[in-house]
Nucleic acid binder design. Structure first.
Lengths: 225, 225
DNA sequence: AGACGTTTGTGAAGCGATGCACAAAGTGGC
DNA sequence: GCCACTTTGTGCATCGCTTCACAAACGTCT
C-alpha cells in the first residue's frame, strides 16, 4: 500500500517522454558518486526548467525532501518502476538488413530490461546467421516464437513495402507494442501501440530550419529563387 | 513576387513535423495516378483531422481550390520548397559502426536532396572502406571536408562517450544542423540545431504503455507485489 | 446566368502543457 | 526549542496547439 501503482495512471504523454532522459541523467550522476540532487541541478543537467521537472516528478509521488532535494538512487529506481523497466521485455527484430543488424546489436537495447530474443528475415542468405548470439529465423516462425518467448515488443526494420504486412503479422501474433523504423506508416488495430522513428523525417525537419536560417541571415542579398 | 518566401516564417514546429508525412503520402498518391485530393481524403490517409491538415497547409499559402481540393503535384512541390528539399544537402556521417553503416546506406537519406558525401571514423580497420561509393576517412579530416564539400548536416552515430566531442568538432567546423543517434545529449552553441533520436527512449515509452495495459486489465487480480 | 452542392480557409472556442510564484515542510545553527 | 535558510510540491496564469463551425469561393448543371 506504500507505493500505489494505480497512481501512475495520470502521467501525461509529455511527462513520460521526458522520464527516460531524467533516468539517464540520474544514472550518470550516480556513476559520478552523486547521491543527492536538487531539482534545479538535475533540471539544468537535463535541459528543462526546474518547475517542469518538479511537476513531472510529483506525478510519480513525493520522492523529494524539502530543503534537501532528491536522493539519486531512490529516484532512479522509482522512475524505472514507473516506466516498467524492472521487468523483462523480450524484443523481436524483423528485417535484418543493415538497420536490423545495427538495432539487434545496439547497446541501448540490451540494457534496461530489453532483451532481443528473436530475429526474423525471409532472405535465405541471412537466415541462420547469428547476430549477438541470436539466430536469424524465417519470418513464418514469428507466431510460434512470439508465444514461446513471450515477445512483447516488435521492431520493424524492413523496407517500406513490407512494413504493413509485418505490422499485421505482429499484431495477429499478439504483439501489442511496435517500434517502426520503416519509412512508411502502418495501420494496425487500436489495441496495438505503434511508435514510428523516421530518419528521413528528422532530416527534413533539420533542413527546414537550416533553410530558414539562410533566408533570414542575408537581409540585403537577393533572395528570389 | 508570386510566392513569398518570407511567409514561411510563421510555420510552427508542430506543423513542420507533419509536413514530411504529408509529402510522403502525396508522393504515394501521385504514384497511383491520383492528381487531385480533398483535405478529408488526404487527412484520413495520413491519420490526422481534416481541419488540422487544412490549417497546416494554409500556413504555406493558398494552394487549394474551394469546391475541388488540392492538386497533388502542385502541393507536393510546394511542401518540398518550404522544407528546403529543392536544394542539395550534403550530409556527413560520423561513426561507422553498425548504425553508421546502416544510416549511410539508408534509402531515405539518398532521396529528397540529401546526399551522404562524407563518412568518418577513427578505427583504422574501417578507414578506407567504401560504403555506398563513399570512402571512410579519419575523423581529423572533418574540418577540411566540411569546407570542401559544403557539408550542411552532420549525423552522429558514435558511442555515447564520443558524442560530445564529435558534436563540438562539427559545430567548430561550421556545421549548423546535427542529427544525434548516440544515446547521450550533447551541448552545442545556440546557433547549432540538434535533433536527437534515441532508440532506447522510444522503447521505454512503449514499455510504459505496455505496462499500463497489463495493470489496467486484471482489475480483480492482486497487483501488490 | 443563376442556383446548388462541395470544399477550402479561418475566426473562435476548447484543451493540455508550460512557467511562475508562493505556501508548506524540512535542515541546521544557536 | 526557536529562527533562518533552503527546496519541494502545487494552485494559477499563460501560451500554443487542436478542434469546431461557418462564411467565402469555386465548379457544375440546368
Amino acid at each position: 500500500m506504500s507505493a500505489d501503482p494505480i497512481s501512475r495512471r495520470d502521467v501525461s504523454d509529455a511527462t513520460v517522454a521526458r522520464l527516460p532522459e531524467y533516468l539517464r541523467t540520474l544514472s550518470r550522476l550516480a556513476e559520478r558518486g552523486v547521491s543527492c540532487v536538487s531539482s534545479a541541478e538535475l533540471a539544468s543537467a537535463v535541459g528543462v526548467r526546474s518547475a517542469q521537472l518538479r511537476k513531472d516528478l510529483s506525478r510519480l509521488g513525493s520522492y523529494g525532501v524539502r530543503g534537501v532535494g532528491y536522493e539519486v538512487e531512490t529516484l532512479a529506481v522509482e522512475i524505472s518502476r514507473v516506466l516498467g523497466l524492472t521487468r523483462d521485455w523480450p524484443v523481436a527484430v524483423v528485417g535484418m538488413g543493415n538497420l536490423g543488424h545495427a538495432l539487434a546489436s545496439y547497446p541501448g537495447f540490451a540494457t534496461k530490461g530489453f532483451r532481443v530474443v528473436a530475429l526474423f528475415d525471409d532472405d535465405p542468405g541471412l537466415v541462420g546467421e547469428q547476430v549477438g548470439g541470436v539466430v536469424i529465423r524465417p519470418f513464418a516462425e514469428l507466431p510460434a516464437r512470439v508465444r514461446s518467448d513471450r515477445i512483447a515488443i516488435g521492431v520493424i526494420a524492413t523496407p517500406a513495402a513490407a512494413a504493413q504486412a509485418v505490422g499485421e503479422a505482429l499484431a495477429a501474433a499478439g504483439v501489442r507494442s511496435i517500434l517502426n523504423f520503416a519509412p512508411a506508416s502502418i495501420a494496425v488495430p487500436a489495441a496495438v501501440d505503434v511508435r514510428r522513428v523516421d530518419l528521413s523525417t528528422e532530416l527534413q525537419i533539420l533542413a527546414f530550419h537550416a533553410q530558414r536560417r539562410t533566408y533570414a541571415a542575408p537581409l540585403s542579398g537577393a533572395v528570389a529563387r
